[in-house]
Design a binder for these strands. Structure first.
Lengths: 220, 220
DNA sequence: GTCTATAGCAGGATAGAC
DNA sequence: GTCTATCCTGCTATAGAC
């Protein structure tokens, strides 16, 4: 990152730096609050580089989702699924925990995770052209798997479809809420988002969701 | 709204229109995505009026919170408290329902409510100078009352402080989530936010939260 | 593929007439 | 208090040298 190797694969190395910085800044401040100048300055390249590589600003934003956000979403989903696959018949608690763990403590660094969530949240609450990407790549698969797994692990009670959807949405809501609303959560709990605290958050989300969707459950 | 009365209190009537349109646009698009020109066009007044009345754009944004958002937050909180005061010893279910009802079906129109939530959410996830206002006027009082009331209605079980805080944060999270993430919720449930649907949402939030924080509760 | 230079325009803000 | 006219900064985007 400090000194680029001269020979091996220098191609489009600027392009990658631009994407990195763009993602970072778009996530932090939002599309309109970030200027191309700011991005290119951070990426230590020339202003014109953005237009050369991406055509225009809009396209760069789009490309951030395609080449940065989507892969992470898939990785995240992969972690979630693998975590489920490692058990024969995961309990509901295990399912919910697998999800919140993937999102709150998964393979990414804390910073990466926050960026990922912020980009997602922005699109979900205020759709632009990337909304469909987010739904197709993150929301739909996660909610689909969640629904399926939760039904499987609790075949006895027949849950009406809308109730199921609202349950799953609520679990999803809590998971992303505790990721994106950090300033508030930290202020209210007095805790920083370190390993210990995120572990407690996962436990909380699991417990809360589990009993939330199962009015009178014994097992945990 | 169409034809202003000529005599009685015409003073600062432009100012009010600017505030109205500014709130609407800031809520919809966010601070940076809105230009002063756009606001003044919508408010059907001159560009210079913003600077005359508010000095600059930043200040207008701030004033939107002071003169529009805060009163609504207080009204909302008032509805919540009155709803509680009308019962001698509200159950936990009644407490949660009072909250989500105030936020999702309260005294405001659907549009107003959405605006209110969006302004709040923006500040909570990405604090600017209005963050403190939001915390002091909305989050702190609501969470304080919620904590107090929930403790009172369930004196038997001693809940650790952090668990209590996380519970309350989760209830708050769901309440605002279902308000601000409408595009997604509508897409997933296939429902518009009409009276019938918001009523079902209130019931869902109440049920989910209630059991979420009470692992093995009978009464509802 | 990266740079400089600059076109062209939209933004916030101000001065001053009315 | 509201308007017109204008300043000037900072933005996106492009042309063209290297």
């Amino acid at each position: 990152m400090t000194e680029p190797e001269s020979s091996p694969e220098k191609i489009d190395q600027t392009r990658e730096r631009i994407l990195d910085e763009a993602e970072k800044l778009f996530a932090e401040k939002g599309y309109h609050a970030v200027s191309v100048r700011e991005i290119t300055t951070e990426a230590a390249c020339n202003l014109a580089a953005v237009n050369y590589h991406f055509g225009n600003k809009q396209n760069l934003y789009h490309e951030v989702f395609r080449s940065r956000w989507i892969p992470r979403a898939r990785t995240l989903f992969g972690v979630f699924r693998e975590s489920l696959a490692s058990r024969k018949a995961p309990t509901q608690a295990e399912v919910v925990q697998a999800l919140s763990e993937a999102f709150l403590r998964g393979p990414m660094t804390g910073e990466e995770r926050q960026r990922h969530s912020q980009l997602m949240i922005r699109e979900l609450s205020q759709p632009t052209e990337a909304f469909d990407i987010v739904v197709e790549e993150a929301v739909a698969p996660v909610m689909g798997t969640l629904t399926e797994q939760l039904k499987r692990s609790q075949p006895k009670r027949r849950v009406p479809q809308e109730e199921m959807t609202l349950n799953v949405l609520s679990i999803f809501a809590m998971t992303i809420y505790f990721n994106f609303s950090r300033p508030l959560v930290s202020r209210m709990t007095g805790c920083e988002y370190d390993d210990a605290f995120t572990a407690r958050l996962v436990r909380h989300i699991t417990r809360f969701s589990l009993h939330g969707m199962n009015p009178n459950r014994k097992e945990r």
